[in-house]
Design a protein around this nucleic acid. Structure first.
Lengths: 209, 209
DNA sequence: TGTACATCAGTGAACGCGCGTTCACTGATGTAC
DNA sequence: TGTACATCAGTGAACGCGCGTTCACTGATGTAC
């Protein structure tokens, strides 16, 4: 997403940067009440603007939530790019990318709560597809490296689905896990560790022939 | 959940078996429109009953959805019990249990759409905890067998979380996967295969030391 | 077997509420000349 | 530099709607005697 600096430079109108303010308010509402508690009017209220204002930027509810979903993919892309760059070797790369995914989910729960919700988001939006592919590409790239250096028989696309399912599933289950099990607090750190351990476990299966 | 025979025997009142009819109608609405399209009045309409009737059985919206979530765990328990009984050896058992989970998700999309939604469901309900633990137990049992026969160093609880995340994540991502990728149709059969392959891959990582 | 009573599932009218959407408007910013 | 005009972000009143909830009720089932 645009940095707030760039955004406020570009949009010097009445509010300053209402589109981003509305997205932030939407994320706040969803984080507090879940997707079920979301409404356009509530979001406008939090952004300190009349309830008709959002329509100028996002059209309707679906438009705003779709923008938020695209941002989810952007956040994943950003974090996974950084993670991949810091990696040493393909095995470490997969672990870091997986951990980055889960950490984005814990830091931005609202975004990952709605990103795979076709009843809330227009998944036909071109930006949605484009940024979704880009995020998915980080997993594919990491696995491609594993294929080349560690296991030429690897089915990269299959493995990418497996990894994606695992990290997204971990985010979905996280609230239940941390409340049910005393051993693990709700700490993002610990769940990040868990994600990395998962990826290392996955790796063993992926490289064996 | 009670069989329809037992239920209609027990409840010979006006409707016959309104509680189950309401749950079925709720699952229908959610399957068609997603959780966002759910309302008590719509459900009552589909069950052919006045909109005040559901309150007699479930109290409010959360009550009905919590009952549906408990049914989700019941369905998982049932399917995983059957799957485990048919298995030959611990490796096959894990694969079958994982496949059973995913097949329940595809056959009953509404149930698994809401089961991990704390904004819709009262996760403090005793039935919810009890049946949730029971379903989780099937994964734990399968992994316990793997630990005893294949890898004494296995962290069973860690492994169970990994497997649960993977199968739930697969269900969450399934719509996006089958629409994005032409190679895989939306067939439950193919996704079941995918789930089983995932579990076999996971297994390799779980048994290595 | 029959009568009186209690229980409770389901009705339907009424309520107030927050919602999304529409629309004429205000007023600030940007542009043409 | 100044004036006139166009654009467009945001306002606020108004609308109709479906929602959850309440409540006095009806009428069928089950029970006591």
């Amino acid at each position: 997403m645009p940095t707030s600096a760039a955004a406020s430079r570009q949009a010097g109108y009445h509010h300053g940067d209402l589109p981003n303010a509305l997205k932030a308010a939407a994320a706040e509402v969803i984080t507090e009440k879940g997707p079920a508690g979301f409404s356009l009017r509530e979001v406008a209220r939090r952004a300190g603007v009349s309830h008709a204002a959002p329509a100028h930027h996002f059209g309707d509810t679906t438009g705003l939530l779709t923008a938020l979903a695209v941002d989810a993919f952007r956040l994943l892309d950003e974090a996974m790019t950084v993670a991949a760059a810091a990696a040493e070797g393909p095995a470490d790369r997969l672990a870091r990318v997986g951990r980055a995914y889960v950490e984005v989910g814990l830091t931005n729960p609202a975004h990952l709560d709605i990103v795979f919700r076709p009843d809330l988001v227009n998944t036909s939006d071109p930006d949605y597809s484009e940024w979704g592919e880009r995020a998915y590409g980080h997993l594919v790239d990491a696995l491609e490296a594993i294929k080349q250096e560690m296991n030429p028989d690897l089915d990269v696309d299959d493995a990418a689905r497996l990894c994606w399912s695992t990290v997204q599933g971990l985010i979905v289950l996280h609230p239940g896990m941390s409340s049910r099990d005393q051993r693990h607090g709700a700490g993002a750190e610990e769940i990040g560790d868990l994600a990395e351990r998962f990826c290392q476990l996955l790796l063993v299966g992926l490289v064996s022939r």
